[in-house]
Design a protein around this nucleic acid. Structure first.
Lengths: 126, 126, 126, 126
DNA sequence: GTGGTCTAGACCACC
DNA sequence: GTGGTCTAGACCACC
């Protein structure tokens, strides 16, 4: 997990985003237990308060659930969990299109550019 | 010009981004004069200092040039100006790919999703 | 630390110059922590914003690195740090030669004048 | 005559310095007439007010003399004129030494560095 | 009017 | 406490 400390985005939001990506990739599934706040704090090199804030926000959106004395757990609600990936993808796509449009690219051009870049990367991997 | 004050991104960075988009779209070209700091401040509804910070950062990257008592102008260097669009596009594409990968999408899937969304939008327009 | 407020040079540049001299003299080394913005501001008798501007400019040139909530630190990059002394010396020498030439001195004369002045000072010290 | 508009030094001071260098080099001598304020302003690409300010300051130090309806003239006082070169040289030398000391150079080292740089330049000329 | 510097002070995220 | 952003407003050099 990489945090960019010089960025404008608050660290707790970076942590939220990181955890949502894990959920989207199914590395964290329904009922799984998150690392304890202290453990996570040590791992990330950050104050436990910051982790707490991240967990709290995730709880508000019902993605996780905290059981006192037990820990913090990924929601059992499959609906919600499946929604994470879809929502993140949608957000990324919408953001990409709107950014590319705002710098003057047509849909065609976006697709071309994207294809191109993917091809380049594929080439590099081999 | 729309600023989203509730976002985590600082206002001066939003202004920078807005101006770079204008340059990318060629709505602002080499030698053009930007609105004065005070005028821009009134238009956007922020403090002139905030605008100045944005203009200064643009000057550091040589996208604009300020002349005391005269105003702030888009660089005459065609190279630099042309680079803006390319760089912004590259950044958007790289960001999109890396985000989509991190939530577990393959290149194929990204392209599909993007095509799909573009088709939907096209339909809506008609 | 002496600031000359009557000079035409902005305070924040004077602070930058002061800190670079400290680095050149190795009184500040890689990883050292600078006084906090507020502390420095009190010490120098200026507004914290002015210090921040100085620190920010130093950060742009990668001489220092700031960590949110932690402080501002001299870069760990030995290369950069070593470069400071060399660059400052070069600048001083180039400036001196060009100034002396512009008032009509030959290289010989510059050297003579310099030797002379150094001798005088040496004499005064004893 | 080169002005650096982005510098912190006021333009009128840059003009003063430029004229003093001309005097030091004897390109302007006792009794010579300076270009009229308007003419100078056009040449330098600056507002006539700015030139006026420069001339006024030179008048205060008695380096020039303004005769109404006639123009601005270099002082006839040989003493003063000869002093210009000497004072500028002294200032340059003192400044150089103090700067070099402040970045940790001994007198020996300054002389070496200076000799070196002069040698390099001599080489380049040939 | 235009940009540049600076102050005093508020509020925020993070420690 | 530490750095980051922002406001309101003063004063300066130059146009």
């Amino acid at each position: 997990m990489q945090l960019s400390f010089d960025e404008t985005q608050p660290i707790y939001e970076q942590i939220i985003h990181y955890l949502k990506k894990q959920i989207a990739r199914r590395e964290l599934g329904p009922g799984d237990r998150l690392p304890s706040q202290r453990r996570m704090a040590r791992r990330v090199g950050v104050n436990p308060n910051t982790i707490q804030r991240a967990y709290r926000e995730l709880e508000i959106t019902e993605l996780v659930e905290t059981r006192r004395g037990k820990g913090t757990f990924i929601s059992q609600d499959e609906q919600i969990i499946r929604g994470v990936r879809r929502d993140m993808a949608r957000e990324a796509i919408q953001g990409f299109i709107s950014e590319m449009q705002s710098i003057g690219f047509s849909g065609e051009e976006m697709l071309d550019k994207l294809k191109n870049e993917l091809k380049v990367r594929e080439g590099n991997e081999r």
